[in-house]
Design a protein around this nucleic acid. Structure first.
Length: 664
DNA sequence: ATGTGGGAGGCCTAACTACC
DNA sequence: GGTAGTTAGGCCTCCCACAT
């Protein structure tokens, strides 16, 4: 169910766009402003009932105005209003009984409007949706420059205990200046806030305001609970009730994530017509981990994977944070269910994953990192398995059993029959002849690294494809982008090799060098100018593939005294460290190297200073013979060797082009 | 000196009107 | 019915007066 809110800037002017929008979004309710129709004018849409409030200008023309259009099959009733404001309201039954009011406030209003707005709200039975163009600017809803009109609306919102559905997306674009502002507001009663998500269209569809879609999602609440001895999670909605007890060693974070994952699994199998869901959790850390693609926890990856699948099925899924213990009914219900599940005697958690960081707290499991690999032991039963490290695993507080036998190697499909399950600690009856099977396996292919434990109560598998599923999708798209100039730099997406010793600035320089950007070639971008012929020529000259060479690593500041780089260091002479050549010169010389230009002097960039820098004696620097083929990329050692004793008041400049470095 | 509020001016566009 | 011209609304930016 979707509600369309739009200042359409003339109903007739943008009628076709409106029809397209309604069909695309299958909107049930339309709240329009600036309809600009008279009483005698038609303001109707097939299948909709129209309720409008029109106004006339001083010459009798239709100006402003507001309207609510509601699908005829939705039960509704018009609410007559006693107000001077351009507002119209309807009581309608959607997923619940709601009052929907469309309002248009022309610009340039006074505090007298506050009284009128208060009078209006008193006539609207809650729960209420008040949607319209308020022509008000406030930081509360994302305006950069608050204005008096915004304060009037702020007071109105605060005084009537209303919630703002707006995110900070811009809703208006001024045609003349192209500036964006937020002047359309979607207000609602607090109890209705969780029911809706708010989204602005990317196109204005002929108006100067962007259409806003307010979508009602089916809300599913999830929660996790942990006591001294047990961990559980739950999910609840109208006809949904999930309660799961996790292994006692699980963290509350795992419980919260498992609840979300179980809901997603259920949605994947659901044949319900409902296509829009909102998962409300009180675990902000879970949402942050999911939102930031922080896949250290296996469940985060699995949740993202499920989200991708659901999205492909056309299911609109939203996750939102819901404060706990403040009286939100759904959250309280989920909390109760989770606490109830703590006392379950059976573990329903049988086929899913737990991160090692959770299992590590199991008193029978010991994990240690050895030679870059993790080795786990189930100490009680003397079972050893090597765990192949993956990026998803983070081991904390490692504990190592002293009883580790020598030369332990993992064995595929190893079978043991311990007395009880070493992982979940469930006691097994003595006459259980089958005992408990624990299978371990390790796998390492081009696609993934993983290992697995299987026991009586649950199976756990570690690891994931080395690159995320989403990442793989990007890879496929990138493969098709062959006409992209960056494609030649990075034809295959893979993990970017980073130099641990390189600082942030060095990384930026390297990144720019990789894509061929420099002040010389793309300085016009930094100066916010148009590229001239000379810039374009430079780009053509310098566009190259630097590959993974890291010769441009910033040199240590003390290189001027380095014995390695100075052939004949003069011990009795105090040298000020000579700076490395400027980026342009280094880039030019790298190009020279890549093009295998030999026996040529070091290239000097085209910024070469034409006039001496004030107060700096211009000391010509002799270029050393180039021998890149034997010695690799250009070195600045010859320059340093030829450095003169520098005065303390000299300005630092590039030893090649002699252009002074800018301060800082 | 700084912040705030209001008005003037400018630009764009829908509505309206006159004309063909 | 189509088109061109006119008008005024809508909303921005800029400027100025006033208050703190």
């Amino acid at each position: 169910m979707t509600i369309l809110q739009w200042n359409c800037r003339g109903f007739r002017a943008n009628f076709q766009e409106l029809k397209t929008l309604v069909a695309q979004k299958d909107a049930t309710v339309l709240c329009l402003q600036e309809i600009k129709v008279k009483d005698s004018d038609s303001c109707s849409l097939n299948g909709f009932n129209t309720f409008k409030k029109y106004t006339l200008g001083i010459d009798g023309r239709a100006v402003g105005g507001a309207a609510v259009l509601i699908k005829k099959d939705a039960p509704h009733q018009h609410i007559p209003l006693t107000t001077n404001l351009q507002a119209v309201a309807v009581r309608v039954t959607l997923h619940r009984l709601l009052t929907v009011c469309s309002i248009y406030l022309p610009p340039g209003r006074s505090h007298g409007d506050l009284v009128e707005l208060d009078r209006l709200v008193q006539q609207l039975p809650p729960p209420l949706l008040l949607l319209g163009d308020f022509n008000a600017h406030s930081e509360l809803w994302g305006s950069e420059e608050p204005r008096p009109s915004g304060r009037v609306v702020e007071d109105f919102i605060a005084g009537n205990d209303l919630s703002i559905l707006n995110t900070e997306s811009q809703t208006y674009r001024h045609p003349a200046s192209g500036s964006f502002t937020v002047i359309d507001l979607s207000l609602c009663s607090p109890s209705a806030h969780i029911d809706f998500t708010w989204e602005v269209d990317t196109d204005q569809h002929g108006s100067d305001h962007f259409p806003i879609f307010i979508t009602n999602h089916k809300v599913i609440f999830t929660d996790g609970s942990k006591s001294d001895s047990a961990v559980a999670c739950s999910a609840t909605a109208d006809n949904l009730r999930i309660q799961i007890r996790l292994p006692d060693s699980a963290s509350i974070f795992s419980a919260e994530l498992l609840a979300i994952y179980q809901v997603l699994t259920l949605l994947e199998c659901s044949t319900n017509d409902q296509q829009q869901f909102l998962i409300a959790t009180d675990s902000l850390s879970s949402l942050q981990a999911i939102g930031n693609f922080n896949i250290k926890h296996p469940y985060v990856f699995k949740i993202l994977e499920k989200c991708t699948l659901l999205h492909k099925k056309g299911i609109d899924l939203v996750m939102a944070w819901c404060p706990s213990h403040v009286g939100v009914m759904g959250n309280e219900r989920a909390d109760l269910l989770a606490k109830e599940a703590l006392s379950f005697t059976t573990y329903q958690f049988c086929h899913e994953h737990l991160p090692l960081v959770d299992m590590e707290t199991n008193p029978f499991l010991r994990i240690q990192q050895q030679n870059g690999k993790y080795v786990a032991s189930i100490a009680k039963h003397n079972i050893w398995v090597e765990i192949v490290y993956t990026k998803t695993l983070e081991i904390k507080n490692l504990v190592w059993s002293k009883n580790k036998p020598e030369n332990v190697k993992p064995r595929k499909g190893e079978l043991r029959k311990p007395d009880d399950c070493p992982i979940c600690n469930v006691d097994r009856p003595e006459d259980d002849s089958a005992g408990i099977n624990i299978y371990t396996d390790g796998s390492n292919s081009n696609d993934a690294v993983a290992c697995a434990f299987t026991c009586c109560t649950y199976q756990t598998q570690f690891g994931l494809p080395d690159q995320m599923l989403i990442y793989r999708a990007e890879l496929n798209e990138w493969d098709e982008e062959t006409d992209n100039k960056l494609h030649s730099v990075q034809p295959v997406i893979s993990e970017w090799k980073q130099d641990a010793q390189m600082d942030r600035r060095g990384e930026i320089v390297m990144a720019r060098a990789r894509i061929g950007h420099s002040h010389l070639t793309h300085g016009y971008l930094l100066r916010r100018e148009r590229a001239n012929d000379k810039d374009l020529e430079n780009i053509t000259r310098l566009w190259f593939q630097l590959g993974e060479a890291d010769d441009f690593r910033p040199l240590p500041e003390s290189h001027g005294r380095s014995g390695e780089q100075m052939d004949h260091p003069q011990e009795d002479c105090v040298y000020r460290p000579l700076p490395p050549p400027c980026r342009e010169c280094r880039l030019l010389n790298k190009v020279q190297h890549l093009l295998r230009v030999e026996s040529e002097p070091l290239e000097v960039c085209e910024r070469r200073a034409t006039t001496p820098i004030t107060g700096v004696p211009r000391t010509p620097v002799k270029s050393a013979p180039n021998d890149f083929s034997r010695n690799g990329p250009p070195s600045i050692a010859p320059l340093i060797a030829g450095a003169k004793k520098l005065e303390s008041d000299e300005v630092a400049c590039c030893p090649l082009c002699q252009v002074a470095f800018l301060p800082g």
